[in-house]
Design a protein around this nucleic acid. Sequence first.
DNA 1: TCTGGGGTCCTAGGACCC
DNA 2: TCTGGGGTCCTAGGACCC
Length: 409
Amino acid sequence: MRPARIVCLDLDTFFVSVERLIDPSLEGKPVIVGGAPGSRGVVTACSYEVRAHGVRSGMSLTEAARLAPDAIYLPTRHDTYGDYAAKVREIASSYTPESRVASIDEMYLDFRGCERVYARPGDADADATIERVVREITARIRAELGLPSSAGIGSSRSVAKIASGLAKPAGVRMVRAGEEAAFLAPLPVRRLPGIGPVAEGRLVGAGITTIGALAGATIATLRPILGAWAESTRARASGEGSAELGRDRPAFREHDEEGDAIGSISNERTFDADVGDPRAVEDWLASLTERVCWRARRRGVRARTITLKLRYADFSTRTRSKTTSPTHSELEVWPIVLELFAAAHTRPRARVRLVGLALSNLGHFDDQLELFERHERLHRAVDEVRARFGFDALRTARGLTVERGRGER
DNA sequence: TCTGGGGTCCTAGGACCC
DNA sequence: TCTGGGGTCCTAGGACCC
């Protein structure tokens, strides 16, 4: 039996907690991070005070405003939260060489083989040793950074993750070896990572409501519902999930190995009001093109695939993509974007709610050739200015027109 | 005025190759 | 004029996570 040595460390209401550090008067008050109550958008994070009124993250701000009209509504400040998250990682990762960043407010730690390093005479057993160390980590994050966090400890990532959710707020929950199945069995299937609203609906439709029932289901039953995930999901439901941490998410990875497939770079924008004029949409696309290309150059990658996303006012969504030769130059990407927009925008009278651009099929493509490229000198000059003053320091006239006066950034 | 934004991964059909 | 079978790449859509 594998001992419980995998830790999921999760910051409690992270964005709210950071806002309270910056403005202590928010302490104890109902706080919603995500935007103004009337605006389009969703709740990104909310304090326990508003959760009591039924507000949940992911909920539209309109509905949140109905449930909690008197709450304090704040815009999200991702860069600020990132700075605090980095400090949390620094503390946590100093306890074990094996750690993985899962998201801005969540990380996994692997303490396998660390028991002796941390053992103290007072510890009842090795489990107690690890639990004590984990409590020390959350206590330090609280003491040194002022941030509350919770942790789950189990023999697999899945168990650790679920345990951390049940430990909130500001708790530590250990599921000892051999207790996994009993711990998981009574929980609703939705608790299992990977089971979202759709899979939940189908499982419940098949009479499977608890993780225990999921663990006992046949693969023949699960295959049509979970597809390729059937086996691994059932294994996780019975407490036999993987303990391997895997790699950091690309956005948090410090270095990419040569030839690595390293995910995608995307930006999208939901308009404050639906847009009818295609030229106005194109202005936004120009801005997004500059942004994703700049991010690609900053990461030292080129993309082979460019994908445009278009969402109409009725929420119908379409994507069009094109794969070409590797590029990170807006001068090369822009004509393709226009081509994709023309292909996607087949309802000329419909109003557009959102446009997005994604670069994928990324790779480090032969940087030696870069010097000979036509646009290289221009990009280098632009990027040097931006490195000092930020992305918005330099914009093309078209990309700038559209964002001016919106008060963002 | 329900439904953000940045990601990962899977499915399924068609093109194309051997 | 009766059509297989494996493999890879591309495209569009969608589920899921935080």
